[in-house]
Nucleic acid binder design. Structure first.
Lengths: 342, 342
DNA sequence: TTGAAAGCGCTAACAA
DNA sequence: TTGTTAGCGCTTTCAA
């Protein structure tokens, strides 16, 4: 559509093109012609040149020249395909952390497409930021991060790495807790509704879940893989219903899947928790969990605390220069609500 | 906590402090000591000086110096207290628009606190961006925008102004549509669950809703104001139930309120849509509307198209210099689902 | 009414 | 092993 030349047009170019000096161009472009007594002829000449050449001001230069104290910039790379509510929870956590810790940073969010982190991490972006928090990197994105030496401090949220500081939840615990609940309730026929594992923590969670159950003689677990969405959860339950016997308890690996599943059970006259108890790995919004029908029992993830931990680490990396990749792991807890009481 | 000096420490300062030249400092700080044969003594001296002085690199300078073609930056100012899912819908809309139109922009999101847009729009931020999209500005934020002449092109989402280009939905239509549905269904005792109007469109919607109903002899409308959240919706319905007679139809001004209301009706054994029909102004996620129990009938807002329109306007403002404040208004539609069929 | 020169913080080339 | 110099794009004196 638009012709984007790779070499940017500068004030100098306009000056050369019109035959006036750079300073005059600068004055005109900032709308100060009148105040500075620039002739109308010159003004028009410059403005039209700017348009034809496709001038866009270089904001770095303006900033540099402005001599304003430049706050360090922290960039949050966010997988924009993530349909969950996490972003708002995470952002809120970050902002609270900024305030509580008295940090003085300029926070910005850069959406990126899963598997294409590399494309978003241009040299320009790297040069333009003092610290980076990366959320939900895919395996492919992780490979990129592991293989390349980026010049900016990076903290990984919910991923493991020996190269970068990481902030995680205890995935083993996340798998163990729901198993314990189901066992305590004497359940015998569990099912797990999950989406393709786009990070290894998901495998760990599921494996520990299975392991704990198998330790108590339960090894026949219905497993349905779908996409991480409400429609995915809905479809997988419909599929489940075709294959009797029904499970007596279900673990959903995300709130999206859980809400879809609940709707499907409801539509088919299956009572939650009467016939089937349901627990979700609570990666969504608290309120949406509390006000669903029935309200959703979850393994609650400490998103806000994790956001704070990410910020602390990045801040440390920015102030101290040399940082070793530490691993912070947060604990989760079971929150019993209607879909699986106690 | 941390001592943030307002004047930033530069490489020059470190040079003066350590008695070596700026270039040496630069080399050391970028970890090139070995490659460039800088002595260990100097290296250590510089690094420790950087730490004690609290040096953070000025990224503008790095960028400027790097000579990389600088993509124009578009900043999305987002009210971070907004609990809705809109951000993800809006962002997705923006990104699709970027791709579809072949725009070459660097997109960034800046969260801000409602009523405090002013604080986020620092000179620095303004200088650092080529175009701004502002979402959900409060009345106070709007006053700030109207009173000040900012140097960067701005487009307003979901707000009106004679100063800036705006992208809106047709608020009259949004008020009219649900009224028409309820009238068509022969409803007599409507209620409206709403939150404090933080922009005038909300008043317009409600006034037209009331007007349309009054035109058909219905002027006794239950009205409950609560906060825009699920708990708000829940509370307001509990309050409503105390004051018999119950309405026979309810308009919720946001999905959050609607979901809370639905839960409250459910908990009190009131059938939706059997006893009460419910319509929401659908500012949330499509999927969450579709898979709620019952699924939510909404006035559907064309978020993605609006995001595209915002981007088009900003792009136009960036390329052409002089732009007049046009007003684009999008049409909404009624989507019938279970909570109010037909 | 316009232009020349200096400098914001940083780095690369070259000199010492 | 380190320093000097020039220049990225822009704006602000000051001079013409």
């Amino acid at each position: 559509m638009r012709n984007v030349s790779l070499i940017m047009v500068t004030i100098k170019d306009i000056a050369k093109y019109t035959g006036v000096s750079p300073s005059t161009v600068s004055i005109v472009l900032r709308g100060l012609s009148e105040k500075r007594n620039i002739s109308e002829v010159t003004t028009k000449k410059v403005l039209s040149a700017a348009k034809t050449l496709g001038y866009t001001p270089n904001m770095q230069s303006k900033l540099l020249r402005s001599n304003l104290p430049s706050l360090p910039v922290i960039t949050l790379f966010w997988d924009s395909s993530a349909r969950q509510h996490i972003l708002s929870r995470f952002l809120k956590g970050l902002q609270e952390s900024l305030i509580n810790n008295g940090y003085n940073y300029d926070l910005q969010v850069k959406p990126y497409t899963l598997d294409h982190l590399e494309d978003s991490m241009t040299t320009r972006t790297l040069l333009g930021t003092n610290g980076i928090i990366i959320c939900n990197a895919s395996e492919k994105d992780m490979a990129f991060l592991e293989e390349n030496d980026l010049s900016v401090p990076i903290v990984l949220y919910n991923r493991y790495s020996s190269k970068y500081p990481t902030v995680n939840m205890d995935d083993k615990e996340i798998g163990r807790l729901p198993a314990e609940v189901f066992l305590r309730h004497g359940k015998k026929r569990p099912a797990i509704l999950t989406s393709p594992a786009n990070f290894n923590g998901m495998n760990i969670r599921e494996n520990i879940f299975r392991y704990e159950l198998s330790e108590h003689g339960i090894s026949d677990i219905t497993r349905i893989v779908t996409d991480d969405s409400l429609s995915g959860g809905y479809k997988s339950v419909k599929e489940m219903i075709l294959n009797k016997p029904l499970p007596d308890c279900v673990l959903c690996t995300s709130d999206n899947i859980a809400f879809g599943a609940i709707k499907a059970f409801h539509d088919n006259g299956i009572n939650i928790p009467g016939q089937i108890e349901l627990i979700s790995i609570g990666n969504g919004s608290r309120e949406y969990e509390e006000y669903s029908i029935p309200s959703l029992s979850v393994i609650s993830l400490p998103m806000e605390a994790m956001a704070d931990a990410c910020l602390t680490r990045i801040s440390r990396a920015i102030t101290d220069q040399n940082v070793f990749p530490d691993k912070r792991e947060f604990s989760s807890e079971y929150i019993a609500r209607e879909s699986c009481p106690f």
